[in-house]
């Protein structure tokens, strides 16, 4: 369960003949009587970075919440339609905790849990029942290294995670998400509270991670989607206006006038 990157070998084939990691069919989300997302249908391929751009209030965060079934823990949130992860409907998971362990999430504002750096990263493995210190040590080091944080914290593993700087905490949350060895990594505007240099470092990490996992990247920076995403979806007012290869999107090859205006920075 925590064999990081054990399936790397198959990565090349997946590129050539992309299988679908995530299939979303007619997804609608509402809070009480207020609709947040309407009738979204899209696919995310294995080992791609799938960007989602769109102005505030367009339903991006709600979309991510539906993917790992956080609607169950969100009072008033109502989800219709189908979400399939690796071909399996998320609602057919009887143990939704096991589903969530396969999906890593990174929030807009870094949430360093009030425990040591080590415990932050070891939490997910511990939750899934790993107790041996030797095993945990390996996972913690590996995840911190992949999140480009190891060198900065290796001497203070047992000091509080919530005392790290904002940029470090955000990499800590990435390390924490990686400790789940996720098949799917969801990032929600991760760079909001992070300086440009750290943002670049994290972007490099994501490019590396693409080899082993699938990433859905919600971003309010259009250029970030351009730098990272293989394909990009444009959300607007609860509607998925368009999904396109990122290159085409920025080369002007888009169908919808609204997408072009948003990408060119004319509104939003």
């Amino acid at each position: 369960m925590v064999e990081h990157g054990a399936e790397n070998a198959s990565t090349g084939e997946n590129r050539a003949n992309p299988t679908r990691m995530l299939e979303v069919r007619n997804l609608s989300i509402s809070y009480g009587s207020k609709s947040a997302l309407r009738d979204v249908t899209l696919d995310v391929r294995e080992n791609e970075i799938f960007g989602i751009i769109g102005p505030a209030n367009s339903g991006k965060t709600s979309f991510l919440r539906a993917l790992n079934r956080m609607d169950v823990f969100t009072p008033g949130m109502n989800v219709e339609g189908e979400v399939l992860v690796s071909g399996k409907d998320v609602r057919s998971w009887r143990n939704l905790y096991a589903l969530r362990r396969r999906i890593g999430v990174v929030f807009p504002l870094p949430v360093g849990l009030p425990m040591s750096v080590y415990d932050n990263v070891a939490l997910a493995p511990r939750l899934s029942g790993i107790k041996k210190k030797a095993v945990l040590d390996v996972i913690v080091e590996k995840c911190l290294q992949r999140a480009a944080l190891w060198d900065e914290v290796k001497d203070r593993l047992h000091s509080l995670g919530s005392l790290l700087s904002g940029g470090q905490q955000q990499r800590l949350t990435i390390a924490r998400a990686l400790s789940q060895d996720p098949d799917l990594l969801l990032l929600d505007e991760f760079s909001i509270a992070v300086d440009p240099v750290t943002t670049m470092r994290i972007e490099d990490i994501l490019k590396e991670l693409r080899k082993e996992t699938t990433i859905v990247l919600v971003t309010n920076l259009v250029q970030q989607a351009r730098r990272l995403a293989d394909r990009t979806a444009f959300f607007l007012m609860g509607e998925c206006v368009e999904v396109a290869e990122t290159e085409d999107l920025f080369a002007g090859g888009v169908q919808d006038q609204r997408t072009r205006e948003y990408v060119e920075g004319r509104f939003g």
Binding site: M70, A98, R101, L109
Partner: peptide, 16 residues
């Protein structure tokens, strides 16, 4: 609440 959400997203049960 953010602490709870972070845990839940990791697959923690309410009791955990």
């Amino acid at each position: 609440q953010a602490f709870r959400e972070a845990c839940w997203n990791m697959g923690a049960t309410r009791w955990q």
